[in-house]
Computed example of a mutant assay.
Amino acid sequence: MLVYQTDLNQAKSFLFNLFRQNATPAAQDWLSQKLTLLDTAFSEKDFYLAFSAVPRFTGKTPLQLTAASIAEADQLRTGFSPAAWTVDQLARTLLLLALPYEEKERFLKIINQLYNTADMGELVALYASLPLLPYPEAFKARAAEGIRTNIGSVFEAIALHNPYPADYLEEGAWNQLVLKTIFTGKPLFKIYGLDKRSNPALARMLSDYAHERWAAGRTVTPELWRPVGPFIEERLLQDIKRLFAEPAGLQHEAAALACYQSNSTEAKNLLNDHPQLKQSIENNEITWELIGTKNLAVS
């Protein structure tokens, strides 16, 4: 397993600059005092108290990010984006990065204690910060645990705009993350690493889910077919033909794009029967991101 370790100094600098751009002067003073205290005379008690108290001093305003900040976040850690973060989440992540990490066991003990006692807002910060923390390989079980949560904001923190799952989750846990994202009506295009982690077992699971929906007289999101395309075989090809039989729209675009990404001769022939869609794909007028964005707008 590859270990993707973010440069902690760069991460702290980047996040604190964001905090200065988004927090009130009073919140900046409070956090600066806490970070200085932890740096000069670290105390677990002081850390836990500060971590818990954050929203009272920072508020929970959503961050306002520039395109340059979003690009810088991705350079810091490929796939990392705090675009959906709030000010308190940012402050809590800075506190996490202030923890002394030279002693691995002590560091992990503190983090695990947080997970065991965290409220909803604290869990959101913990899961979203995973790609930045030291010893990232130690949190695979925690990430898998996050997938099972019934709290929407917590699930989104681990599943969306977060590179950690794609880099570290085992295949079974990854497949459950994708399926649950669809089941809960969240957009697949916001899952980092979806294409590189697609696999035959996931394609079959998604097909089974589609058949259950169809049997109940329900529709399925056109994004469902994104991880299916590279693994089209006879049964899955019948699913794609069914999409083409539906009224023209996003389902047709999804069917065409799945065929375009397939190595199946039958799928390629099916796509050739829809030359306008094929041309639109080649012109980048149909992409999974565009399909997901359009589907989100009409959901």
Rank of each mutant, 00 (worst) to 15 (best):
F16W: 15
E102H: 13
V3F: 06
Q5H: 00
L96C: 07
M205I: 01
L270Y: 03
F244H: 02
F51E: 04
I110L: 14
A267R: 02
W85P: 09
K104R: 15
D239F: 06
G146M: 05
T265G: 07
E103Y: 12
I281N: 02
S280Q: 12
A53L: 11
L96D: 04
L2F: 14
I191N: 06
E285F: 03
L270G: 04
G217H: 10
I191E: 05
L133Q: 08
P230Y: 03
N162W: 00
M120Q: 14
D119L: 07
L65G: 06
F244I: 02
L94S: 09
N283L: 12
L133N: 05
P25A: 08
R77M: 15
P25R: 07
S280C: 03
A245N: 03
M120Y: 09
L177F: 05
K34Q: 15
A118C: 07
I281D: 02
A73W: 01
N295Q: 07
G172V: 13
V178R: 02
K196R: 11
T93F: 01
A73N: 08
V87H: 07
D88N: 12
I147N: 08
L277G: 03
T287Y: 00
Q176E: 14
I158L: 12
Y168R: 00
W85S: 13
F42A: 12
F19N: 09
L123V: 03
N112D: 13
A26M: 14
V124S: 06
A256K: 02
L90Q: 05
W225S: 05
L271T: 05
G59D: 08
I151R: 14
T40N: 12
I147L: 14
R77V: 11
S43I: 10
R197N: 14
G185F: 11
N284F: 09
D7L: 11
L132A: 13
L177W: 01
L65T: 05
P163E: 06
R226D: 02
S43G: 10
F244Y: 11
R106Y: 15
L108V: 10
S129M: 08
L76W: 12
Y135M: 07
G79H: 09
A50K: 03
Q64P: 00
E285L: 13
K241L: 04
L179H: 10
I240P: 03
S81H: 02
I191V: 15
E266V: 05
F231Q: 03
R106K: 15
D195K: 02
P222C: 07
L160Q: 04
T221M: 01
K109F: 12
L76P: 08
R106H: 15
R56I: 14
Q21G: 13
L49D: 14
L202M: 06
V298N: 08
Y209N: 14
K278L: 11
N9D: 15
E145W: 01
L132N: 09
R218P: 00
Q276C: 04
S262N: 00
I286N: 04
S69Y: 05
S264Y: 01
K278I: 03
I70C: 05
R20I: 13
S153R: 04
R204F: 10
F139K: 01
K12G: 05
E170M: 10
K190A: 15
S32K: 10
I70M: 10
H274S: 10
L126T: 02
Y115P: 04
P100Y: 07
P163I: 03
L194T: 00
V124T: 09
A173F: 09
Y4W: 11
A159L: 01
L63I: 04
F57L: 08
P134S: 09
